[in-house]
């Protein structure tokens, strides 16, 4: 007798729970009412960035939030507290069981993410990457521009500043950061073909995406190569460390410092020329571009040559030769002290 009553209670409570669940589902549907899998309220996009707390990815988060407000899709951003590949693997591993619709990733090291991204895709999660033009386990990779062309553009500007002759060095966040290495290779190729007098002192130097490391390495460079005339940074915080070392050594008029960064990080070094010029693409727009692609994929559509994402610089995507899933826009911006105030991030 007792057994039966227990059973009854159990069944009753289970069905009550189920009822709660279904009513919650209905309300969260926002009255959209259809079985359409691509309804905004059914979608959940998670952006995983290299590290949190830096200006660059704070700006990207602004874009992610804008996207969420504009579309009604649950889009959030997360990341580790330092730029180590292992932590990023762990974050994505933890996301897979939560089954988001799509994961947008800015990898610290594309190679070390291949395994975990494959598992995400096997689980039916769409994967969109950024700054990883060779990523294999991705549905689409979106780059702001063609990296070689961007590197060449940086070299054009640096060579102009250096008077088209002298030694230069190139910092990258990590030697495994494909994008940074492609910029460096693009710059070096342009120097070799167009500016014979401009030579690189060493292979790309690793800053570990850390201003302090960039600062120490620059001091070393300046001691070992007193005649160095140009330095290029790749991670957004590189030029701040390079600029500080150059300023402390009193070399702001002798050394041209340029590189990828954002105005808020480099602004204070513009005034006396410790940093001469920075280049970037707007991370907020890039963050949105990844999510727009994620949405296209979630709706079962394709990204192809000429796709218009409706974002500045991403109006007509180009496919990279030899890599069907990698696309780029045309979205670089040059900033020096004359126009730094226009970009508030």
């Amino acid at each position: 007798m007792r057994k039966i009553s227990t059973l009854l209670v159990a069944v009753a409570s289970a069905s009550a729970l189920a009822a709660c669940g279904s009513s919650a589902d209905l309300s969260s549907d926002g009255g959209n009412g259809g079985g359409n899998t691509a309804a905004p309220a059914d979608l959940r996009f998670v952006t995983v960035v290299k590290l949190t707390g830096v200006g660059w990815f704070n700006r990207m988060e602004t874009g992610v939030k804008e996207f969420a407000t504009e579309t009604g899709i649950d889009a959030t951003q997360t990341g580790a507290d330092d730029a180590g590949p292992e932590k990023q693997v762990k974050i994505i591993q933890d996301l897979i069981p939560q089954r988001p619709t799509a994961i947008a990733v800015v990898p610290n090291s594309p190679e070390s993410l291949e395994g975990v991204l494959k598992r995400a895709r096997d689980a039916g999660i769409k994967v969109v990457t950024h700054e990883a033009s060779d990523q294999k386990n991705t549905d689409a990779d979106i780059e702001a521009f063609d990296n070689t062309a961007y590197g060449a553009h940086m070299m054009d500007e640096l060579a102009k500043c250096m008077g088209e002759s002298g030694k230069y060095a190139n910092f990258v966040g990590h030697l495994t950061a494909k994008t940074h290495m492609e910029w460096a290779a693009g710059a070096q190729a342009r120097a070799q073909e167009k500016f014979k007098g401009v030579t690189r002192v060493a292979d790309p130097i690793e800053s570990q995406e850390n201003t302090g490391v960039a600062y120490d390495r620059t001091k070393e460079l300046l001691t070992r190569n007193p005649d160095i005339k140009g330095i290029i940074g790749s991670a957004a915080t590189d030029v701040a460390g390079i600029g500080r070392a150059v300023q402390e050594a009193g070399l702001q008029d002798k050394v041209c410092v340029m590189g990828t960064s954002i105005p808020s990080v480099s602004e204070k070094y513009f005034a006396d020329g410790s940093i001469d010029k920075i280049f970037f693409w707007d991370p907020a727009v890039a963050g949105k571009a990844m999510l727009k692609i994620a949405r296209l994929l979630a709706e079962g559509k394709q990204v192809e040559e000429g796709t218009n994402l409706g974002l500045p610089g991403y109006e007509s995507l180009k496919r990279f030769p030899g890599n069907a899933t990698t696309f780029h826009g045309n979205a670089w911006i040059d900033v020096d002290k004359s126009n730094a105030a226009e970009y508030k991030f």
Partner: peptide, 11 residues
């Protein structure tokens, strides 16, 4: 990190 802040302040 939880209460004071997690932002990188460049100025």
């Amino acid at each position: 990190i939880a209460f004071v802040g997690s932002q990188y302040l460049s100025n």
